[in-house]
Nucleic acid binder design. Structure first.
Lengths: 237, 237
DNA sequence: CAGTGGTCTAGACCACTGG
DNA sequence: CAGTGGTCTAGACCACTGG
């Protein structure tokens, strides 16, 4: 594997920033300093810095310097960002707490989406540093979930567990009021606003293999969508 | 305003690609060609090309060349769909009813985003076949809005009216409860769920030129996001 | 004012592609 | 093989920041 200098520098800088070598909001050494310290040209140093900026870790102001980003992450590579991802990027420990694991008869809606009568239904809570931030219900065809254990679905994402190759997904984002089932586990009042996402995940042959509903308290969650071009803008005006 | 060469080149290339000068999947001229044609250094040409790749418009393969992207990573952006768009596609008549048109002092938040003290603030209602489906508030710097009339903003989208070239936007999607101002004009009860979108629109130089807040009744509206590839899926699991 | 990041040039070597 | 994009250098001028 050929060593790519700017990636090496970026990786090193990321480690140093994440290790807290520079305080949050704190200023980094200047590009000239890095040029000397890493023995690389300024262009290469800048390429490393810019890649970290794309990741939202650091930011810069002309005439001032580079500094550790305090603002919300703005991932330019990803079109859709969630609090789950932001948390993971910031090193917060996320885990899944399984509330319910059962093979059940599909409801009409679930049968309509997945096309089967018997499904594995998993209800879980997504936690960040021990605090719940999403209540998730996942359904998959009983046949596909037959070999899964409750421990499996706690340890890894469903995508990794299914014996099929995942193709893509379609997600809808809506607003709703917290029901008592949500409110109890998410520690919000009944009737408070929540974001409710319903996602249909398909395999490479475009057959639906997962249906999931994610409920996020509104005060914790926001979806960020970058619309990079004028042509995409006209779609939502 | 200083001209930034790589942004000029990027804008020109974007126009040419979107005009279909290169067929979908088709190969672009080489970097060496562009260097000659634009009279800029290869580094500058590459910076323009890379910015378009970040936008998902084009892609490259080492030893092969640059080509128009077919499986656009950013495709899902073009597929962010709203009820507004769906309505327009179905031939429903949409119109804007201006509720308020005023030059006012910017709030701290608006000033923070737009960087100016005086703004034009327009409140409007978006209607579909005569029924309201969104309450929108738009702020733009007073200087940019100086030549706009109330009739202008009723007749055409803000994007078409501003004397600047629009680059892109970043939108956040959240949930909230209807306030009385929303409830009155949207014909929903106070405290019912709404989707609340805040969008920052930038010009081609990446300066914010518009801030807008869109409030949709939850029972009328749903955002649909296609996540076409497994790699984009991992971002939201 | 000195120091900073933002842009840009004109070179260079390399890995990779396709014929 | 010739041509391509990917990386990298050592300079340069500029706009902007803060004191």
């Amino acid at each position: 594997m050929r060593e790519v200098r700017y990636l090496e520098i970026a990786a090193d800088l990321r480690k140093r920033v994440e290790a807290g070598e520079f305080s949050a909001g704190g200023v980094l050494p200047s590009e000239a300093d890095f040029t000397r310290a890493y023995g690389a040209s300024r262009v290469t140093v800048r390429k490393a810095l810019e890649s970290l900026r794309d990741g939202g870790l650091i930011d810069s102001r002309q005439g001032f310097g580079w500094f550790v980003a305090v603002d919300r992450v703005r991932q330019s590579l990803a079109q859709l960002s969630t609090i789950e991802r932001d948390l993971a990027e910031r090193g917060v420990v996320t885990e899944r707490q399984i509330l319910d694991f059962a093979f059940v008869a599909a409801s009409a809606h679930v049968r309509g989406v997945l096309g089967v009568d018997q499904v594995l239904r998993v209800r879980r809570l997504n936690l960040a540093d021990g605090s719940p931030f999403a209540r998730v219900t996942v359904w998959c065809p009983a046949e596909l979930g037959a070999s899964l254990s409750r421990a499996d679905v706690a340890a890894r994402p469903f995508y990794d567990l299914l014996p099929v190759e995942i193709g893509g997904a379609t997600q809808t984002i809506g607003a709703a009021l917290a029901e008592s089932a949500d409110a109890n586990v998410l520690a919000v009042p009944v009737g408070s606003p929540v974001l409710r996402c319903e996602r249909v995940t398909r395999d490479v042959d475009d057959h639906p293999v997962l249906l999931s509903v994610h409920v996020f308290p509104a005060h914790l969650t926001e979806f960020v969508v970058d619309l990079p071009s004028p042509s995409s803008l006209s779609l939502v005006e």
